[in-house]
């Protein structure tokens, strides 16, 4: 009987909305302030562009990824899930697909562009064809 009681209480905590839930005000404040700081930092980095283009892109990408993870944890509560962590599994599958899709598309299309006539020459050629 004891066991069943414990189980009941455990579920009650999960189900009943009268009980405090894992997402707390503190979490939201941490998430919000760090997001603001990261956003400002990225903004200032660009307005005082202090490094070359590719260095800047890497810095900005890292800042964006950090903010992404922070919002995942503090706003979307991805870390407060019970096993099996299905939400996390679906999230990671999505990220895999996105990396393959975006990375692959950019790779393929850049490779193609590199083997094409450049845009200026192409436009000139097209204009000459039109005027014929």
């Amino acid at each position: 009987m004891n066991v069943s009681n414990n189980k009941h209480e455990h579920l009650d905590v999960l189900v009943s909305s009268h009980q405090p839930e894992p997402s707390t005000l503190k979490n939201y404040i941490i998430g919000f302030t760090s997001s603001v700081i990261l956003t400002m930092f990225a903004y200032l980095a660009v307005t005082h562009q202090f490094a070359g283009k590719w260095v800047m892109i890497i810095i900005l990408a890292i800042l964006a990824m950090t903010q992404f993870i922070i919002q995942l944890i503090y706003f979307l509560h991805i870390n407060q899930e019970f096993a099996p962590r299905l939400k996390l599994i679906v999230l990671l599958s999505m990220l895999t697909v996105v990396v393959i899709l975006v990375g692959g598309s950019i790779w393929i299309m850049n490779n193609l562009n590199g083997r094409m006539m450049d845009t200026k020459a192409m436009e000139q050629y097209m204009n000459s064809q039109n005027s014929l």
């Binding site: 562009q49 900005l60 964006a64 919002q71 706003f75 979307l76």
Partner: peptide
């Protein structure tokens, strides 16, 4: 709330990739 937070997450990337990358010299 899930939907709304998600839209903010997407905006992080629009802000970074479209706008910040866009004005880099």
């Amino acid at each position: 709330s899930l939907f709304w937070h998600f839209l903010d997450v997407v905006w992080i990337f629009i802000f970074t990739i479209v706008y910040l990358f866009g004005v880099l010299k």
